[in-house]
Amino acid sequence: MGETRGSTTTTSRGADQTVVIEARGLVKRYGSLTAVDHVDLAVEPGTFFGVLGPNGAGKTTLLELIEGLRQPDAGEARILGEPTWPRDTGLLPRIGVQQQASSFFERLTAKEQLEVFADLYGVDHRRVSELLEMSGLTDKSKTKTEDLSGGQKQRLSIACALINDPEVVFLDEPTAALDPQARRNLWDVLRGINDRGATVVLTTHHMDEAEVLCDRIAIMDHGQILTVDSPAALVRDLGAATRINLRAGAIQVEEARGIRGVEGVSQEDGTLSLTTHDPTHALTELARRDALDGLQVTGANLEDVFLNLTGREYRA
């Protein structure tokens, strides 16, 4: 079926639906802790949807509620129009889930793991070599999962989530504990899944990851969704200042404060930071004083959005 699907943002199978994932008033409590606190959510077909938040924000629990792994204390989650609780074996073949832990059968090779999952879904084994190829594990197909690296395990885990060619894919922090190179490799894989038409929901605590991959982002903290929008709109709406970093000593702190439009100056760890809403003027002034040593200019990013929304340090 995969080859008949286009690379547009709508799926042929989900075309009759305007909402693929829907959560209404979801609540989950563990003792006195409310892990998910009245969450409403709607995800449109073909979206690459990110759930962003610090550790303990409730991202994983929210995903588990939506996937039907846990019973909500209140509210309801639907995927493709079907309630996900109680367990619905008719719906399960249409979704794919990659969990935080690498959950594999003991002592099986990468290829054997995929074959078992193929059989569990009743899918043809031809799909196995396809997925090994896609996840770059073809040369590791005879390696036992215990002997794979962290990144290889993650990719295999994602491949297992795709074995049934799902319409909706959930990925829970797929790049956690990966080195930068492996992360970028995995991003390509994830984009590929979305390009083939699947709706992808991803949790992450990496701002850059959400910014690069996602069409829409929900920012979550304390079990609640604070806002949902596209990454660009979130940053734009923030109206945040631009930060100009220089090597410490490039210009005297007092002198920097004197530049028109500079709102704040701080110096630490050998770096002098200026914040301003008028970067053109500030940069011109700095250039005129020949004080551009070690220059870095950063606009507002999701991290600023996050700090602005939660008012607290980001615990990545």
Partner: peptide
Amino acid sequence: MPFVQWRVNKLLRRIRLTPVR
């Protein structure tokens, strides 16, 4: 032992997400 191991490494949950009885 496999039963506990599968619960700890979440394979049990993973299997639950497949249409297996």
